Computed example of a mutant assay.
Amino acid sequence: MENNDYSHLKEEIISNNRIFDGKVIKVDHSRVKLPDGGTADREIVYHKGAVALIAVHQEEMYFVRQYRVAPDDFLLEIPAGKIEVGEAPRETAIKELREEIGGVAEELEEIQEFYVSPGFSNEYVYLYEARDMTIDVQELDDDEFLDIVTVQLQDLKKLLQAGAFRDSKTIIAVQHVIAAYNL
């Protein structure tokens, strides 16, 4: 049986300096005490979390294509959005599905939760699958510009292997759909 006491690996923050306090993220420069007694510097990005949505309707999976400034690229992604203060992940999922693709789901099932890049960020994503969905009109935020893209389910594996999806939430979602739908 595995020992679940990992305290010998824990780092302790001994000093902290907030170097950025923005609308979406906060960034700290921290000094930590290492398990062996030494010290190291850590840069930590704090994020309120996000939701992402698997949206399959009539043998097609829904994606959005949008420009992302950080990688300077147009990415094909699943619908997603950040969780607002005081908002539950499920509420955000319902809102983002409607905003980004005009989707309304009879049921939302949580599929997975994961950290995006735990080496420097606490950003946590809740992945939902929208079930029994109808499609209406997009209700984009004023600062959102994206195209809806639908992909036939039988084409997902080929597109995944070709590198069409390059962000972690979308790759996880596509792999889930390929397995769940036996594609």
Results as ranks from 00 to 15, higher is better:
residue 1 M to A: 15
residue 4 N to I: 12
residue 5 D to H: 15
residue 6 Y to F: 12
residue 8 H to D: 12
residue 9 L to I: 14
residue 12 E to Q: 03
residue 13 I to D: 01
residue 20 F to G: 05
residue 20 F to P: 11
residue 21 D to Y: 10
residue 22 G to Q: 01
residue 23 K to D: 09
residue 24 V to A: 11
residue 25 I to K: 04
residue 29 H to T: 13
residue 29 H to Y: 13
residue 30 S to N: 13
residue 30 S to A: 15
residue 34 L to P: 05
residue 35 P to N: 12
residue 35 P to I: 14
residue 36 D to K: 14
residue 36 D to T: 14
residue 37 G to E: 09
residue 42 R to P: 13
residue 43 E to G: 10
residue 44 I to Y: 09
residue 45 V to E: 04
residue 48 K to E: 05
residue 49 G to W: 02
residue 49 G to Y: 04
residue 49 G to C: 06
residue 50 A to V: 05
residue 51 V to H: 00
residue 51 V to K: 00
residue 52 A to S: 10
residue 52 A to D: 07
residue 54 I to W: 00
residue 56 V to A: 02
residue 57 H to E: 11
residue 57 H to F: 08
residue 59 E to L: 03
residue 60 E to I: 10
residue 60 E to V: 09
residue 64 V to S: 09
residue 65 R to P: 09
residue 66 Q to L: 14
residue 71 P to E: 02
residue 73 D to M: 14
residue 73 D to G: 13
residue 74 F to Q: 14
residue 76 L to N: 13
residue 79 P to L: 02
residue 81 G to K: 02
residue 84 E to S: 15
residue 85 V to E: 06
residue 86 G to W: 04
residue 87 E to Q: 05
residue 88 A to M: 03
residue 88 A to R: 08
residue 89 P to T: 01
residue 89 P to C: 06
residue 90 R to S: 03
residue 90 R to A: 03
residue 91 E to R: 00
residue 94 I to M: 05
residue 96 E to V: 04
residue 98 R to V: 07
residue 104 V to C: 14
residue 104 V to W: 03
residue 105 A to I: 00
residue 106 E to K: 06
residue 107 E to S: 08
residue 107 E to G: 01
residue 112 Q to H: 11
residue 117 S to I: 02
residue 118 P to A: 04
residue 120 F to Q: 07
residue 121 S to C: 09
residue 122 N to C: 01
residue 125 V to F: 04
residue 127 L to I: 03
residue 131 R to C: 02
residue 131 R to T: 03
residue 132 D to S: 13
residue 139 E to A: 11
residue 139 E to G: 15
residue 144 E to G: 09
residue 144 E to T: 12
residue 148 I to T: 14
residue 149 V to G: 05
residue 152 Q to Y: 15
residue 154 Q to G: 09
residue 158 K to A: 07
residue 159 L to M: 07
residue 160 L to D: 00
residue 161 Q to M: 08
residue 161 Q to T: 04
residue 163 G to E: 00
residue 163 G to H: 09
residue 164 A to Q: 09
residue 164 A to W: 08
residue 164 A to F: 11
residue 166 R to G: 01
residue 167 D to K: 08
residue 168 S to N: 13
residue 170 T to Y: 07
residue 176 H to R: 12
residue 177 V to H: 02
residue 179 A to T: 09
residue 180 A to M: 06
residue 182 N to P: 01
residue 182 N to W: 04
residue 182 N to L: 07
